[in-house]
Simulated assay, not measured.
Amino acid sequence: MTHAHPHRVERGSRARLSGLAAEESVARHYARSGRAVLAWRWRGPGGEIDLIVREGARLVFVEVKASRSFEAATAQLGRRQMDRICRSAEAYCGEMPDGALTEMRFDLALVDGQGEVRVIENAFDGG
């Protein structure tokens, strides 16, 4: 039986907690502008979607990335992850009244080391 190194477990736990704090900050950011958070950490066939937000008739699927700088956070999102998030978003929309015709957008929400939030709307376009 293998055990994770104690420092690795602590680092993973710290990263998970900072990820939760980042998601909470981003959820507050959307809520302040009158958009409702419908789901947190929704699991679909492609994997987890951090936040799903309603913006009028549109659903916004939000990937949250936290790092010491916005640039470092941006670098954490890769094409394969975007594709997985898109698959899960399609499954979520399949449960909506308009199904695949549901208007949607994919945002990347960045949280830097000072806790500042920056949202890149339509972050997956052209990627």
Rank of each mutant, 00 (worst) to 15 (best):
M1D: 10
M1Q: 11
M1L: 14
T2H: 15
H3N: 10
A4N: 11
H5F: 09
H5Y: 13
P6E: 01
P6Y: 04
H7P: 04
R8W: 05
V9N: 00
E10S: 10
R11Q: 11
S13H: 13
S13I: 01
S13V: 11
R14H: 12
A15F: 03
A15V: 03
R16H: 13
L17G: 04
L17Y: 08
S18K: 13
S18C: 00
L20G: 01
L20T: 12
A21I: 11
A21L: 14
A21G: 02
A22E: 01
A22Q: 02
E23S: 13
E24N: 06
V26L: 07
V26Q: 03
A27I: 03
R28W: 09
R28P: 00
H29D: 09
H29A: 03
A31N: 04
A31I: 00
R32Q: 13
R32Y: 05
R32I: 04
S33Y: 08
S33F: 11
R35P: 02
A39M: 08
A39S: 14
W40K: 09
W42V: 05
G46D: 07
E48N: 12
I49T: 07
I49D: 04
I49H: 02
D50G: 04
L51I: 04
I52P: 00
I52V: 15
I52M: 07
V53E: 02
R54A: 15
R54W: 02
E55K: 12
E55C: 10
G56F: 12
G56M: 11
G56V: 11
A57K: 06
L59Q: 03
V60C: 11
K65F: 03
S67L: 00
S67H: 15
S67G: 12
R68I: 00
R68L: 14
R68M: 10
R68A: 14
F70V: 06
E71W: 05
A72Q: 09
A73M: 08
A73H: 03
T74R: 15
A75Y: 06
A75I: 02
Q76A: 11
L77C: 05
G78W: 07
R79L: 15
R80L: 13
Q81K: 13
Q81N: 07
M82V: 15
D83S: 11
D83P: 00
I85S: 00
I85G: 00
I85P: 00
C86W: 02
R87S: 07
M96H: 14
P97D: 12
A100V: 09
T102L: 05
T102N: 03
E103N: 02
E103A: 14
R105P: 01
R105A: 15
R105I: 07
D107V: 01
L108F: 06
A109C: 05
A109P: 06
A109T: 04
A109D: 01
L110N: 01
L110E: 01
V111T: 10
V111F: 06
G113Q: 13
Q114A: 15
E116G: 07
V117A: 06
R118C: 04
R118N: 08
R118Y: 05
V119R: 01
I120H: 06
I120K: 09
E121P: 14
E121W: 02
N122M: 03
N122L: 07
D125Y: 09
G126R: 15
